[in-house]
Design a protein around this nucleic acid. Structure first.
Lengths: 258, 258
DNA sequence: CGATAGTTTGATATAGGTCAAGCAATGTGG
DNA sequence: CCACATTGCTTGACCTATATCAAACTATCG
């Protein structure tokens, strides 16, 4: 049983309380922070109670005071059109940072909600900023995260403005595959944490189109789908359709939102 | 005649050599830098020889060593699809920063080329980084620029995935209008620095569609177009079609790529 | 002033959206 | 633990916004 050591909805788990022992740290802190630096960062991080499916981590317009790293589960980020429709701008898997794009506003520019039961590390921004004043490596890492997000966004624009339905779905699957691989999971078999509807929303397609492309890919033996379980049968062809070279797929360079 | 005081293609103009006296400084340095800070920044900035129409400021893959501020003219940034097509990701008008998205790579992730004769201020990144270590305000400003770009990119994704042709063109014109206004020019009458083709490329539309929307808007008395000259006749309706509230248009908040 | 590139307009084709219906999975209360 | 409801997924039929193709017209440039 974890002991409550912090106020509010933050609690310290007895295990995995430290960045240094966290299995994800090599991914969410790819900067070469030395041990002391990690220790300092560690002290300002809070582990929050898990979010249940559908709960918000934060809402567009909420006052910006923390950034987050996903520990387990997954999140979708989205903005609202002025007629109330949602536009998903990103999905976030474990080890990925969330909320950095609010960094110069007083409030979050997007909403973020859990796709399933999800745990996150919470980093109070004021503390992070103080700390980054002292740690050039940490600062560099923050710039990196931001500029990576920009590069990914440009690739997403390309996808939305030039790619057809099959290319979009193939790119999406290849991207997820690379992200699972990065975390040490199979890049061939994984479970989609989001619904077809959410995939369509994100890719600028109708649900029906996503569904049809899935069945078409299945018919051509590129993937095997069973509900949310996906198995990639012909990775080569998937990458080809996505319009990605082997190398791009490996590095995740041209992959969207990784 | 400007005197050559620096090596290579950089030269110091006798006038407007200083940020402090530059008419754009309030826009490209909206941070509240004190006079000393501006002076320090000033010393590391180089004014380059004008780029002629079609010349590259930098190419995707070039080694990243400078960021830029547009002084006059305009630029388009674009990435290449793997089949050689270009996807324009942004247009840059005077006072706007270019190249920040290369910040954590060794090379620029996009290409940038002049749409017309264009002058820029060049800021060597290594120097900027050193300086930002000392000036928290400058650092804050850099984070601001990056996170603003991310927010704009999200809006662009929304445009590309949810808006129809008329909404896209209206959004584009409203955005340009706000940017001209910001620089002290008329928000009602301005000259498009880019071709219809480039507008279409940027907005994910065929040239023909852009042209047709322009004529439709003209027929409904929303704008008057003569070649590249645009006059906005019915701003209210333009904003309505764009799906922007008056307030959003004023602040440029939801406007793409400003 | 002819050539070349950019723009407009019309005619036609099509990818993907929308609507509708059935089916599968998941959740809920008795 | 099981009916039943709700939500998500798939498939088919049809429609429409926009792409594509073609041609004329207009600016721009050497």
């Amino acid at each position: 049983m974890p002991s409550r050591q912090q106020k509010g909805n933050c609690l310290n788990l007895t295990k995995e309380t430290r960045c240094m022992t966290c299995s994800l740290s090599s991914l969410c802190l790819p900067l070469s922070l030395n041990l002391e630096d990690i220790d300092q960062l560690d002290r300002i991080i809070k582990r929050r109670q898990p979010l249940k499916k559908g709960e918000h981590l934060f809402r567009q317009g909420d006052s910006f005071d923390c950034v987050y790293a996903v520990r387990s589960g997954s999140l979708k980020n989205y903005i609202m059109t002025n007629d109330g429709e949602e536009q998903i701008t990103n999905f976030h898997l474990p080890s990925e940072m969330v909320g950095l794009d609010g960094i110069d506003c007083s409030s979050y520019p997007v909403s973020s909600r859990a796709l399933e039961t999800t745990t996150v590390c919470e980093i109070p921004y004021s503390r992070l900023q103080e700390l980054s004043n002292e740690l050039p490596d940490l600062r560099k890492q923050m710039f990196s995260s931001l500029s990576k997000e920009i590069r990914d966004d440009k690739q997403m624009m390309l996808l939305l403005s030039k790619k057809n339905a099959e290319e979009r779905v193939a790119t999406f699957l290849a991207n997820l595959s690379a992200r699972f691989k990065r975390r040490g999971y199979s890049p061939y078999t994984f479970r989609l944490p989001m619904s077809r509807n959410e995939i369509g929303n994100y890719l600028g397609l109708a649900v029906e189109t996503v569904s049809r492309v899935f069945t078409r890919f299945q018919t051509s033996q590129i993937i095997a789908v069973n509900g949310k379980e996906v198995h990639i049968t012909d990775r080569q062809q998937l990458l080809e359709i996505a319009g990605l070279s082997e190398c791009e797929a490996e590095t995740g360079a041209k992959l969207v939102a990784s």
